[in-house]
Amino acid sequence: MKPNISSAVAEKRSGLWRRMVKSWQLYALLLLPLAYLILFHYVPMFGIQIAFKDYSPAKGIWDSNFVGMKYFIKFFKSYQFTQVLRNTLVLSLYSLITSIPAAVIFALALNCVRCEGFKRLVQTVTYLPHFISLVVLVGMMWQLFNPLVGTYGTLYKSLFGKEAPNILGIPTAFYHLYVWSGVWQNVGWSSIIYVAALSNADPGLHEAAQIDGASRFQRVIHIDLPTIYPTMIILLIMRCGQIMSVGYTKTLIMQNSFNISYSEVISTYVYKIGLGSNGNYSYGTAVDLFNSVINLILICTVNKISKKVGEESLW
């Protein structure tokens, strides 16, 4: 019996080997992408160890002195810890509760439009801001809300007859400017997925409901909304997994000395303490690692929960 089993294993192994040899051309295609992936994504992961070390350029990553949790403790104890954590959470939760409902309501409304031309016009125009760069978006916002020369300023003056208060100078306004400019930029684009789900809905349901005397509004609530419910859940899960990551680009661009205490989020803080003037690589990496680990835990948890609750999951 024994030789038989081992020969079967050997045969299986040689089968795998033969299949691998047979698809060598596929591996060849993968060569460059895989090399890129390993060099630019996996090699930096080894660099994370400097979070636990006192990195000195002279000694290099591997030979720097090990200091354990020093930099994590430093971060938890620093006065900025609560501030950046609060800003990160407020910004992402605020974005979450505005952007998803906005896109859903917009998609539902769009689905009710009976004039195809109007629908297409609205879609074309509302998708457009998605392709504008963040620098231009913030630049436009700064121009339009300029109390002296912007549209906001001149409109305010002509309506109330006095000079407009400077919204951009109010530190707490940062949250609202950040979130609502995001809604402005992405409401159309994020509605695409819902509009598509709605157009795939069974028309029989609508006909049946109409015969039973349901109004259009009732049909929106009882037919359209349940149709896009699964899509909504998936997107909500994805967003929940990213609660600790607020994009640094937009925040950095919008940041100035007025709003710094409301606009400093973890990712911008990492940049500043790590790569800014007098940057400390180890400290920055520690804060970044803290953030990524929480993100990783969040996304796995949320995915597990959603798997249990329904069949929707990311992987």
Binding site: L37, L39, F40, H41, Y42, V43, P44, M45, F46, G47, I48, I50, I61, G241, S267, V270, Y271, G274, L275, Y281, G284, T285, D288, L289, S292, N295, L296, I299
Partner: peptide, 15 residues
């Protein structure tokens, strides 16, 4: 995996 975890800004900069 790289979509949910990365080396982060500073190790990438060092690389």
């Amino acid at each position: 995996f790289t979509m949910i975890f990365s080396g982060g800004m500073i190790p990438t900069y060092m690389l």
